[in-house]
Design a protein around this nucleic acid. Structure first.
Lengths: 233, 233
DNA sequence: AAAAAATGTTAAAAAGTGTTAATTTTTAAA
DNA sequence: TTTAAAAATTAACACTTTTTAACATTTTTT
């Protein structure tokens, strides 16, 4: 399963900064389209579906504010971050009045930009159509319902404990990627220590017990990294 | 009808800046609680329900980052803006890693702060369940009226005790989030002790008894954390 | 190949919760 | 003010979940 990447539209007329940002963001796993002026950016926006827009305010042909105004006519909701060298108060206010989610003044660190992008995406993608999260996963011949903490096979309902359910959910969410030990420990146990790690190993064992009736399901250990849930067919 | 205001928790040890911000925000229609140190802010957080937290990073007794870490254990989702005089890169990164939504470096204009608060609230309140009218909640086939302390099914009216009603209200307010034991104990019993915790367990049992005629309603225990009211469909 | 590190497995200890009933405290009626 | 009823707390015991400990096995490093 290939998870589709988050799409970013970057409108920046400074070629150096633009390509630097694009390659940084792409390296971080995003799919970034770089446009060098407002017209080009608008065309890209029309033809592609983006998750977030990074707009330079001062650009040739069409400035960032005008561009944002046009885009907002189509989409009230798409996240926008303005990037600008100007730090005049009035501009910041105007930016936010256009429904901006953030307003960064150059120079900024790329890492901070990344953090801010993620902070916004965290909120904007969780409110997507699938609003009430079902949290129901199909695992081989089993149905795993996280909200009700149950694992069902045919008509046999198995009640899961909180930790079992949490760990299984993390494994499910990771698809065929490896779930890192440290990530799981921080998310579920809130702390990555020796004993918590051993506790997690016990839970991995318990999950394997739960699934042992279905030989197609395997909780694979990646030595020194973590675990991966694979469903053979 | 009095529309309830958006509640802001402002933790700022500089008394001048603090009261300036509070009066500005209050004038803009928010209900702002000002705390002058991290401990006080944590207590306010426990006892009140806020829509957004503005945390100074450097505060006496407990710094903003530590405070945020503790709060995040209870609520992964509540919006947090850090306010700080430090502009060191590493702090910004740490702030966002704690799940911050924004990070403002002093001095900032109050208008910009307001804009940033609104930009975040716009996204975070989108998926909030609409507030119940007059403290009346629909729970599966039951109607729970907090003001009258009654639980009604069809035409059968059950009178609830104070503690039953208080606890049920907290569970309802939490939606499908887990109601933390410690939070419930501090809010209802005013003190988190062993015996109060056992008392609360007895009340959980009583609530389950009240709902046992509707198998779709479940008061789920999250081991070591608290309880969660879920309505199956 | 031996040592070290990581993981698998099982069992016991510790912590937390469910349930019932007795006791104490509070409330409201006489 | 006294007293019965209701509400809340405390106690007791059963049970569940999680952690810790111990030892076996596998994988990686030296």
């Amino acid at each position: 399963m290939t998870l589709s990447k988050t799409k970013i539209l970057l409108a920046e007329d400074d070629a150096n900064l633009g390509s630097l940002l694009k390659s940084y963001l792409d390296a971080k796993g995003y799919a970034t389209d770089l446009c060098v002026n407002g017209i080009e950016a608008y065309n890209s926006y029309i033809y592609e579906k983006y998750d977030i827009l990074l707009l330079d305010v001062m650009m040739p042909l069409k400035d960032g504010f005008t561009l944002a105004k046009e885009i907002r006519k189509n989409d009230e909701n798409i996240p926008i971050i303005f990037l600008t060298a100007k730090s005049l108060e009035v501009d910041v206010i105007e930016g936010f009045n256009l429904g901006a989610d953030d307003y960064l003044t150059k120079p900024f660190s790329m890492e901070e930009l990344l953090m801010r992008i993620n902070a916004i995406l965290r909120r904007s993608t969780q409110n997507k159509p699938s609003l009430p999260k079902d949290n129901i996963y199909k695992i081989g011949s089993f149905i795993f319902d996280y909200n009700h903490q149950t694992l069902t096979k045919k008509d046999v309902v198995q009640k899961l404990t909180y930790k079992e359910a949490d760990l299984l959910k993390l494994l499910c969410e990771n698809g065929d990627e490896t779930l890192d030990r440290t990530i799981a420990l921080k998310k579920i146990w809130k702390d990555d220590s020796y004993f918590n790690a051993r506790s997690m190993d016990v839970y991995i064992f318990k999950l394997r017990q739960l699934f042992k009736s279905d030989p197609k399901i395997e909780v694979l250990n990646i030595h020194g990294k973590g675990f991966k849930l694979i469903i053979k067919n």
